[in-house]
Design a protein around this nucleic acid. Structure first.
Lengths: 198, 198
DNA sequence: CATGTATGAATGAATG
DNA sequence: CATTCATTCATACATG
């Protein structure tokens, strides 16, 4: 199903395989919201929320004021108010805060690591560990030098056999079901939901 | 996080030290060519389950069929079957349903309110009440209902019983609210943040 | 017109 | 079940 909150037909094909042709249908006219919205040149294209300057300002102010993760009702409120400046949905507000917070944190982390990098050139191992901050995982990145199927795959059927993925080293050794096969002998690519529903 | 997942090896803070199970450790090349061919979506990197289209389809179908909270057995079954299309673990299935359900719900809520917004312009009071659904607080937020002038209007305030402020219970909102009443000299298309803050 | 950057959107994975 | 974090995908926009 069109999971997520995409109201528009922005169907994203997770794997650019085959002829997906997203064909983003000329989305339902979004009720010309863009009209004169942001004074600052804002090509109001539809398909993805394009915040007005005023909207951004307000959001930023709120953020600066300390609001980081608004509750649902706060989101509603903000959204309502911001709708005054142009088209906006609550999910936009939601995402905005989500992203803003995350990126700020990310940036901070980056800077931190970079500092470390300057000082700890030689110990670039600990960098990762620091990144994990407490989890202290062993990075161990033996990369397979990926010289193989880097080109492309006719299909996307992900069968990455050789990763350094920990366990489960047997992707295909095991065809499908166990007991279900008794009842139905389906062909491979179609597994039966009715049973798994059980 | 209770009985349901015990079978998947989903430990809750196992030992605070070594995640025995999935052990994320994506640890992508620190700087390397992250971009790379990734563009086509579906980075083949592992560390996090990246469902196949087929897998998603099946899961979605199951969901549509009414399955919302599969039991452990069901999860096992589904996982087994889906493993045909690619690497997958039970916990992935578990999480998938968890997320899918939650997000659909969230979306629903938002859309609902959004619709209310459209229809109940005139009664912008009841919107909040609906949002609270059960707590029925009096919001009383007289707002310009996107029609007239942008000039500042009598800032009306509401009496919002913010009884469930979590971490957001920062002193900001307080100060903001008070402060603004004193000097409301927003010359701009001012919408009141302090209000929307709550 | 290609490449890089900022950011909206989505979703897997947790945690309480 | 809700809420949050992290990571990634996709797109708008700027630059050369």
């Amino acid at each position: 199903m069109d999971e997520g909150m995409s109201d528009f037909g922005l169907k994203l094909s997770p794997t650019k395989g085959g002829p997906p042709s997203p064909a983003p249908a000329p989305a339902p006219a979004p009720a010309g919201a863009g009209a004169g919205a942001g004074g600052a040149g804002a090509g109001a294209k539809c398909g993805r929320w394009n915040p007005t300057n005023e909207q951004v300002k307000v959001l930023t102010d709120l953020f600066r004021s300390g609001l980081r993760t608004p509750t649902t009702d706060q989101i509603q409120n903000i959204s309502s108010q911001l709708s005054f400046y142009g088209k906006i949905e609550s999910k936009n507000v939601f995402y905005w805060f989500q992203n803003h917070k995350a990126r700020e944190r990310q940036k901070r982390r980056r800077v931190y690591v970079e500092n470390l990098d300057q000082n700890d050139h030689h110990f670039n191992v600990s960098k990762q560990q620091v990144l994990e901050s407490g989890r202290v995982i062993e990075t161990l990145q033996l990369f397979p030098v990926n010289s193989l199927t880097f080109s492309d795959q006719p299909e996307k059927v992900r069968a990455y056999t050789n990763d350094e993925c920990k366990e489960n080293a047997s992707p295909f050794m095991y065809t499908c079901a166990t007991e279900m096969e008794n009842h139905y002998q389906h062909r491979h690519p179609s597994l039966d939901l009715r049973l798994s529903f059980m």
